[in-house]
Design a protein around this nucleic acid. Structure first.
Lengths: 179, 179
DNA sequence: CTTACTGTACCGTCTGGACGGTGTTGTCAA
DNA sequence: TTGACAACACCGTCCAGACGGTACAGTAAG
């Protein structure tokens, strides 16, 4: 029952992310996801009655995971400002070799409106940071630079070397610390 | 002859960009592009024998236009460092209401390798800026922040208000000026 | 005669999704 | 305790439609 369903759901979501990353965002078909998840197409459509619902599931999962990571990070970290936490968390995310969210491209191709929740999440995050930082200029620069880093990671761009990434992180933290 | 061909080519490219922006990147079909360009499908395939060639044309045109804009800007501008020129140019690009390059998503969906020329272009640009700037930290921050701005524009994200964008631009130029 | 198309008809492939079936599990009356 | 029954989770097949691409005949301009 519940357990089985939850496992299937998660397996499918993970499989979708894998397929998008490995076969390219344009090859994210239901068949591909189903076979990757070890589930028949019928089973897939049982969990996600339409492709749009699958995409929505991906978005929601992604946002939930990020929010939770940010929350736990800001909660238990000693003396770390929210902006610092956000910078470090994002930098960590981008450190991983594989872009974790290239399914986003599939979602956009399917329907650009899938971005709406992500956009509003970002807007909320920005507003929150704005409320907890008194140097708007520093916040803007840091926030945008992180956005740039995420974008590069998403596009699997290797413009920056690891050393450069480290230097960037240090610079941003320096800017953010003045607070 | 030449004139007719060149016009058709450009019209088709522009039509493709329009379709991608208005109907969504997933709806960039040959039929849609042809009818939008006021050209028959046969005529479209005469100019671009395959969809891949169309995408390639989009990428090449985009890069060429950007390179030229940057060149003229750095050439005639008095006392503007290359980094400043790049910042101002990109900020201008992002000021326009419509994301100019949402066809990129179509290209990625078709085949992620279409990004390769863009990536190498960015790498070259970064290396060039690195050679002409002596504060690597400032360069990194500015370059990434601009990347973030471009990404937001591409995703049609309205996280930043116009005022905030202006403030960001001023901050970046300030950082870049220390040089 | 060549160039630069138009227009139509067509093919093979792929995709989302509908549908009918199936085994396993939980529930509940007798 | 057991047997009937229903809900659940999933399977496998089938199909209409859209898409990229081809082929080809026609045409207007130079």
């Amino acid at each position: 029952m519940k357990a089985r369903r939850a496992n299937s759901r998660d397996r499918i979501l993970a499989a979708a992310a894998d397929v998008a990353r490995e076969a390219g965002p344009g090859s994210l078909s239901l068949d591909a996801v189903a076979s990757r998840a070890g589930v028949s197409k019928g089973g897939l459509l049982y969990n996600f009655p339409t492709k749009a619902k699958l995409m929505q599931g991906l978005v929601e999962d992604y946002l939930k995971a990020f929010e939770q990571a940010l929350e736990t990070r800001t909660a238990d970290a000693g003396g770390e400002t929210p902006l610092e936490a956000y910078i470090r968390l994002s930098a960590n995310d981008c450190e991983e070799p594989q872009p974790s969210a290239s399914w986003i491209f599939s979602a956009i191709a399917e329907d650009p409106d899938f971005l709406t929740p992500i956009k509003s999440f970002k807007r909320q995050l920005f507003e929150r940071l704005k409320g907890e930082t008194n140097d708007l200029k520093a916040l803007l620069v840091c926030f945008l630079a992180i956005e740039g880093l995420r974008s590069m990671n998403l596009f699997d761009s290797d413009v920056l070397s690891p050393d450069e990434r480290r230097l960037l992180l240090a610079s941003l933290l320096e800017i953010a610390k003045v607070n």
